[in-house]
Design a protein around this nucleic acid. Sequence first.
RNA 1: GGACAGGUGGCCGAGUGGUUGAAGGCGUCAGUCUCGAAAACUGAAGUACCCGUGAGGGUAUCGCGAGUUCGAAUCUCGCCCUGUCCGCCA
Length: 423
Amino acid sequence: MHDLKSIREAAAEFDRGLARRGLPPHSGRILALDAERRGAQTELQDIQTRRNDLSRGIGIAKSKGEPVEAIMAEVAAMKDRMAALEALDRRLGEELDGLLASLPNLPASEVPDGTDEHGNVELRRWGNPRNFAFAPKQHFDLGETLGLMDFGRAAKISGARFTVLKGALARMERALSAFMLDSHTIDFGYTEVVPPALVNDAAMFGTGQLPKFSEDLFRTTDGRWLIPTAEVPLTNLTADEILDEAALPLRWTAFTPCFRSEAGSAGRDTRGMIRQHQFSKVEMVSIAHPDQSDAEHERMTKAAETILQKLNLPYRVMLLCAGDMGFGARKTFDLEVWLPGQQAYREISSCSNCGEFQARRMKTRFRPTEGKGNRNVHTLNGSGLAVGRTMVAILENYQQDNGTIEVPEALRPYMGGLEMIGV
RNA sequence: GGACAGGUGGCCGAGUGGUUGAAGGCGUCAGUCUCGAAAACUGAAGUACCCGUGAGGGUAUCGCGAGUUCGAAUCUCGCCCUGUCCGCCA
């Protein structure tokens, strides 16, 4: 959600930001609506002032036993105009809010230009892709051959884009979640949270999934939504609250299932576990002071990278270009893990600084320790990591020529000391 | 799901359709006092928006949304949430 005041003050800059997102200018329409609405509000409030004075006068006159018919007639005469102005104010407000709510966040200045993933900039690489003495397989071949990953039966009971994991791989999902949560809570100070997986409209609006992206979501028959990421419930934890500055930053992490309809991605990643309707993810969310959100963003990304490093999985860090960022982000780092079976780097984490964008939607502010005037917090979210894709990466990077899988050392304590899968 | 009872400012808690943004208490902040603190006393303080260069003025807001009324925290309706009991249930 955008701030009207800042658009009034810097309309050209606002439109420049939209242009970087590939959108036409909107400030003209917004400011026209804003001006018209404020005119209506001002006139309405003047009438209300008069109405309140007169009504008060009626009460006083009555208590004195004086006649009130003349005053009542005067108030009654204002009713039509008041109703018209109220309707106008509401209509203009709805159009204005609808417009403001539909526009994505503006990219930070250091975000590169670009319309799609080809505009993203590689910042750094970590780890060296292993040299295989054989042709590395893709994760679904490995998993199915092991008999621990079953897409056929998942389709039987649920349909496409679901997986059944069994045995050591089912356990690996549990192990990975515990491993990741331990790292974030113990090494990075995040507080572990178990949030609801079903949320209401307001929460989905707060983080920006609604009103524009409802087709990407699953909806329950009683009108709730299945979370597409724990970012939604975690970030909305502070909705409608005014926090103490001293409480910042708030850092939360949660392991949850995530549900996405994947409408519009038909044909992409149809095989395997890369793109599923349901997947597990450990998410991090930080609620930060505006002055500290850039540092918090780096810190959060570091927490996600640490998981990959501990698992010894090669990856690269991408700075997303303006056109490839999500709706609410002003700056995003993607972590892409090396998948030898695909011979490609694939996204395994996305860490975004949303600035004030979500805070304004959720009405999350903080009270400065010094000075007056409440300010919007900055919100950040990042995967740490997508558990299913982490399993994919482990299968492909740790596969042996006989199809067995070595368990990464860091994970062994979480898997009862298991060193090899499939032997 | 059914039956009751509730939802008031940071918290607790009054509130009769009429000059109530809302008594009182607690807590918070500032000041007086003090070497300092406590106590006491004095004062300040919700949120959003509009007008105004400013000082300042105004509107809305008592769970949310409609309605009745010249006027609604107070009356009516719908919804949401909380508590208690019953039913069902992991």
